[in-house]
């Protein structure tokens, strides 16, 4: 359920040169599914900034974000104790009921964070997820240890081969036995996954948004079942409905 809440920054620290982790406390009860996002109001910026939910607990929300522009640059500098105006409970999120016994979670770069909470939810539902995390280089790696700590198999791929398997996430998929897949990452990665994936799956998309809750039609895309708003009817779309 969409809610406007005021959350307090409890932690805000870098994980790599460009990726940071922010932990917020307050009423996060509006968030109901993994793969949903929140929309943050930041000083001096007009539009809110949509950030995916990385992890969730009672009264506690973790965001892992990449510093790419004005908004995330400001987020990096926010001190602990800052109160943020946040819209929570945005987007449809991943549907875990379709996972089958052995779901595969495939994350590329800054698309990785929402898969963490998804992984925890799938484990809680007695599934046996396998995780593939794709990075450009070893230095860009983040969250790999946190996934491993959940006790799930983690396959890391790097484009330059400096960590894990050399290549792309699709190279990591070879030989993995899975019943369904969930992914989040850049479009070229999505296209590559769609070419090789053996099962149905869900893709979480990114688009520039106005409102984040379905009012402005700023992020509409075409699907096989008509127009969908990435922010409201997505960000997660099923493989079979996507128009590539």
């Amino acid at each position: 359920m969409v809610k406007q809440v005021f959350l307090k920054i409890e932690q805000n620290q870098p994980l790599t040169d460009t990726v940071c982790q922010m932990v917020l406390s307050g009423d996060v009860s509006g968030i109901t599914a993994p793969g949903q996002f929140v929309n943050l109001k930041l000083d001096g910026l007009y539009l809110r900034r949509p950030i995916s939910v990385c992890d969730l607990a009672e009264g506690r929300l973790t965001l892992v974000y990449k510093v790419v522009g004005q908004g995330t640059e400001q987020m990096r500098t926010l001190p602990v104790g800052t109160i943020l105006d946040v819209l929570v409970g945005l987007g449809n999120g991943y549907d875990t009921s379709k996972s089958g016994p052995r779901p595969l979670l495939i994350g590329g770069g800054v698309g990785i964070p929402p898969l963490y909470y998804l992984c925890r939810r799938l484990l809680a539902e007695d599934r046996e997820p396998t995780v593939i995390l794709g990075f450009n280089t070893a230095a860009e790696q983040f969250l790999a240890a946190e996934f491993a700590a959940l006790g799930v198999p983690v396959i890391v791929t790097t484009v330059d081969g400096s960590a894990g398997k050399k290549g792309f996430v699709t190279d990591g998929m070879a030989g993995v036995d899975y019943s369904y897949f969930y992914t989040c990452g850049p479009m070229p990665m999505f296209r590559a996954i769609d070419k090789v994936a053996a099962t149905g799956g869900q893709f979480s998309f990114e688009e520039r948004m106005g409102c984040g809750f379905g009012a402005c039609m700023g992020c509409t895309c075409k699907t096989k079942y008509g127009n969908k708003r990435i922010c409201r009817d997505g960000p997660v779309l099923e493989r079979e409905e996507i128009v590539w």
Binding site: L45, Y46, L47, Q70, E207, R208, M209, G210, C216, M217, G218, C219, T220, C221, K222, N227
Partner: peptide, 30 residues
């Protein structure tokens, strides 16, 4: 929402941009 005779998809994305004290939209009458 602005209504036309036929259904309209509107413009391709991105349709939204941040501006100082405001925003640009080019939704295109979806």
């Amino acid at each position: 929402k602005g209504t036309t005779a036929q259904p309209r998809f509107g413009n391709p994305a991105p349709r939204i941009a941040e501006c100082p004290q405001g925003m640009l939209n080019a939704v295109g009458l979806q």
